[in-house]
Amino acid sequence: TTYKLIANGKTLKGETTTEAVDAETAERVFKEYAKKNGVDGEWTYDDATKTFTVTE
């Protein structure tokens, strides 16, 4: 399944996707990606669109 991340960070803005077996796995991947890019904010997830959003 393809999951999408929308990053609304102070230093990183944009979108990326990952293939994962479930939302929990995708969330781990995206949180690691955000951490590597210095983004720390509020996370939301929309199951209907398989989209995570992080906003600083």
Rank of each mutant, 00 (worst) to 15 (best):
T1A: 12
T1H: 13
T1E: 11
T2W: 13
T2I: 14
T2M: 13
T2P: 04
T2V: 14
Y3M: 01
K4E: 02
K4A: 04
L5N: 01
L5Q: 01
L5M: 08
L5C: 08
I6E: 04
A7K: 04
N8A: 09
N8P: 05
N8Q: 11
G9M: 12
G9D: 04
G9I: 10
K10G: 10
K10V: 13
K10D: 08
K10P: 13
T11S: 11
T11H: 14
T11V: 12
T11C: 15
T11I: 12
T11G: 11
L12G: 08
L12D: 05
L12Q: 07
K13L: 11
K13Y: 12
K13P: 09
G14N: 09
G14Q: 12
G14I: 15
E15R: 08
E15V: 15
E15I: 14
T16Y: 15
T16Q: 09
T16E: 05
T16I: 15
T16V: 15
T16N: 06
T16C: 15
T17I: 10
T17M: 10
T17R: 08
T18Q: 05
T18K: 04
T18F: 12
E19K: 13
E19C: 14
E19Q: 14
A20T: 05
A20N: 03
A20R: 02
A20D: 03
A20I: 02
V21K: 13
D22T: 05
D22V: 03
D22Y: 03
D22S: 08
D22Q: 03
A23D: 05
A23I: 10
E24G: 09
E24F: 11
E24T: 10
T25A: 13
A26S: 02
A26R: 00
A26V: 02
A26P: 00
A26Y: 01
E27G: 08
E27R: 11
R28S: 08
R28Q: 10
V29I: 15
V29L: 12
V29Q: 08
V29Y: 15
F30T: 00
F30E: 00
F30W: 02
K31A: 05
K31G: 03
K31T: 04
E32Q: 10
E32R: 07
E32I: 09
Y33P: 00
Y33N: 02
A34P: 00
A34D: 00
K35L: 13
K35P: 01
K36L: 13
K36E: 11
K36N: 12
K36C: 10
K36P: 02
K36F: 09
K36H: 09
N37R: 10
N37L: 14
N37K: 10
N37V: 11
N37S: 07
N37A: 11
G38E: 05
G38S: 06
V39L: 15
D40C: 12
D40A: 11
D40M: 12
D40E: 14
G41Q: 02
E42Y: 13
E42P: 04
E42L: 13
W43M: 04
W43D: 00
W43T: 01
T44L: 08
T44Q: 09
T44M: 09
Y45G: 00
Y45Q: 00
D46K: 03
D46E: 06
D47G: 08
D47K: 09
D47F: 07
D47V: 09
D47W: 08
A48C: 09
A48K: 12
A48N: 11
T49H: 05
T49D: 04
T49N: 07
T49C: 04
K50V: 03
K50F: 09
K50M: 07
T51A: 03
T51Q: 03
T51C: 05
T51P: 00
F52V: 00
F52A: 00
T53N: 04
T53H: 08
T53Y: 14
T53W: 10
T53C: 07
V54A: 02
V54T: 02
V54I: 10
V54G: 00
V54L: 12
T55L: 07
T55P: 01
E56G: 06
E56T: 07
E56N: 06
E56R: 05
